[in-house]
Design a protein around this nucleic acid. Structure first.
Length: 562
RNA sequence: GCGCCAGUAGCUCAGUAGGAUAGAGCAACGGCCUUCUAAGCCGUGGGUCGGGGGUUCGAAUCCCUUCUGGCGCGCCA
């Protein structure tokens, strides 16, 4: 348990004891103690912790909340004196506010310092196995801005959940089967023939991007014109195989430049090859949920909470994407994951209910399949919306973005906003790499601290043993503010994991950075009295670790110099 | 038509398992560098939380209704 958790636990126990005592004395009547919370007030004038117990008891006890709060406060720390609580006050509608003694913060910092690089981590997730699938863009093109957002959110969430004690695996689902691959093959074939001066009809809804042409050129360079004499079916297959491998390699490389590494690359085709997709159809048949109509096979989704049945196998005998996706999620559950998290673009939200119903109907826990819907990114350039289309080949790629703004800014930018707010990406602004960018502000805090620690070392000042440091000397307001925020790190990481909200870490680290800059402006570290210098050096040390930890969770570097 | 997401300061957005006087950055204005990085700090101004009802000790947060924007509702993925 971390310092805050422990304290909250104690305060809750103290209040429960006070309520029981009041009831025993006949001052207060209630049947069951409501489930109250110990929260950290937004305004530090309201103390370090606040409890809402009195308000929640009001109805049962038939008494004014403030009156109840007074009764409870009077009972607190009567039997046993408080160790860390300095005073208790009643405020507002009946809040019971706890003010902690300075030694409480000091011991919290000592605890954080002793944890070293592990500070901020917790066992909140208790080793639960979680699969996070994100990006999973079609391997028919390059990654674009929307994928970049998904990658930033997915990878950061994976990092955060790992730090919060979950066992996480990152997965990329490769859509290397189905109709769009067929279409991809037709487009490749047409470009191939064109390049070799043969008549070719380009498919109407084909992939128009320049990259298709360059891929075909690469093929011709390596293999020549030998496909001219090959049967069209085989020709398309060979071209497709070549192109998929090229595209996938490019996607991998781009993600790697972006700081994203996957544990598993899962091919849709393997589900078809292994018979897993067919098995899904058999499963529904066995469950009596299979319909046959218009030469197609349907899943009776309307009997599982959905609006209408869904096609599993088309009239032409080819299974739909949906069927493969069901087989895929079934496979994920069978690999032993307790939770599946998918990060999808908001344009796929219609698919969520269908998929959940489908896996639920097969007996898998549909509530353990969570989909984070990420609103789409709109690109602005020159003050105008740029319509992005993969087919039309008009999109900004992840690699281009990385060249323009760099990995740190790109990742921080995307993860700063919550997934469910649509965002406008102003390319001109991002290109400027202007100093308004908050990522520099935070990184600058880290660099500043590092500079202090480095100079201390050069002056021969070593950090003392923790046991000999008097953290109680940190009495300045800016020191205490920084300390309070610092101690919240484990809570913040756990909360971000629980709420699946990586943007919380971005917000936290910006606040932490701001508090450090304020501290820096007011308090000197080097050259002050030796004991105070030690306490402040340790404060810097822990702060640097916390800032670096947050930045790394977001896939952003923590530079030592800027 | 039905469904999902959003609407909070001039701009970009936090805050939503109900909590105290709604926050931050940018922009505007005024201060602070002979000492650890001024990419910084301190201060000032700025709001019908889209509108309207309701629930209760208390609502930006929950419910209903309505307006606006985005996206879905394929034998595409």
């Amino acid at each position: 348990m971390n310092w805050l958790e422990e304290t909250r636990f104690e305060l809750k126990k103290d209040l429960q004891a006070a309520a029981e005592a009041a009831r025993a004395a006949g001052e207060l009547s209630f049947e069951q103690l409501p489930d109250f919370v110990i929260e950290r007030p937004r305004d530090k004038a309201h103390g370090d912790f606040a409890a809402n117990l009195a308000m929640l008891l009001a109805r049962q006890a038939k008494m004014a909340p403030r009156k109840i709060a007074e009764l409870l406060a009077a009972r607190l720390y009567q039997a046993e004196p408080a160790v860390y609580v300095d005073k208790v006050e009643i405020a507002g509608a009946g809040f019971i506010n706890f003010y902690m003694r300075p030694n409480w913060l000091a011991e919290g910092l000592a605890d954080a310092a002793a944890r070293g690089a592990a500070f901020g981590e917790s066992n909140f997730g208790q080793g639960e196995r979680v699969n996070i699938e994100f990006v999973s863009a079609n391997p028919t093109g390059e990654l674009h801005l929307g994928n970049a957002r998904g990658a930033a959110i997915g990878d950061s969430l994976a990092n955060i959940m790992q730090a919060a004690g979950f066992q996480v695996e990152r997965e990329y689902y490769i859509n290397d089967a189905g109709k769009q691959i067929e279409n991809f093959g037709l487009s490749l074939e047409a470009r191939y023939l064109e390049q070799l001066g043969q008549p070719a009809e380009f498919p109407e809804d084909g992939y128009h991007g320049e990259d298709i042409i360059s891929t075909v050129k690469e093929y011709i360079e390596a293999e020549g014109d030998k496909l001219l004499t090959v049967q069209p079916d085989l020709r398309r297959e060979l071209l497709t195989r070549f192109a998929l491998q090229k595209k996938l390699a490019a996607i991998r490389t781009a993600l790697s430049h972006y700081g994203v590494e996957y544990d598993t690359w899962f091919s849709e085709q393997t589900l078809h090859d292994s018979g897993a997709v067919k098995q899904v159809v058999a499963d529904y048949k066995a469950a009596g949920l299979l319909l046959e109509q218009d030469d197609a096979l349907w899943f009776a989704a309307d009997r599982c909470g959905c609006e209408k049945p869904e096609v599993l196998v088309r009239a032409n005998g080819i299974p739909t994407y949906y069927t493969a996706d069901i087989a895929y999620h079934k496979n994920k559950f069978e690999r032993g994951f307790a939770r599946l998290i998918n990060i999808w673009g908001a344009d796929h939200h219609g698919h969520v209910a269908r998929l959940k119903a489908a896996v639920g109907a097969l007996g898998y826990p549909a509530d353990k399949l969570e989909v984070i819907l990420m609103q789409l990114v709109r690109l602005f350039s020159g003050g105008e919306i740029v319509r992005m289309s993969k087919r039309a080949g008009t999109y900004v790629t992840l690699e281009e973005l990385l060249e323009e703004v760099g990995r740190d800014a790109a990742r921080f930018f995307f993860v700063m906003r919550s997934a469910d707010s649509q965002m406008d990406f102003d390319l001109d602004l991002a290109k400027k790499q202007s100093m308004d960018n908050p990522v520099f502000y935070v990184q600058y805090a880290h660099a500043r601290i590092n500079s202090i620690l480095l100079q201390a070392k050069e002056q021969g000042v070593e950090l003392s043993d923790l046991a000999q440091v008097n953290f109680g000397l940190l009495q300045e307001e800016s020191e205490q503010d920084l300390l309070r925020k610092l101690l919240e790190l484990p809570d913040e990481i756990a909360a971000a994991a629980q709420q699946e909200a990586p943007h919380k870490i971005a917000a936290y680290v910006m606040e932490l950075g701001a508090l450090f800059h304020s501290f820096y402006a007011v308090c000197r570290v080097l050259g002050v009295e030796a004991d105070l210098q030690q306490a402040r050096l340790w404060l810097c040390q822990v702060t640097a670790g916390a800032v670096a930890k947050c930045l790394h969770l977001l896939g952003v570097s923590a530079p030592e110099k800027m």
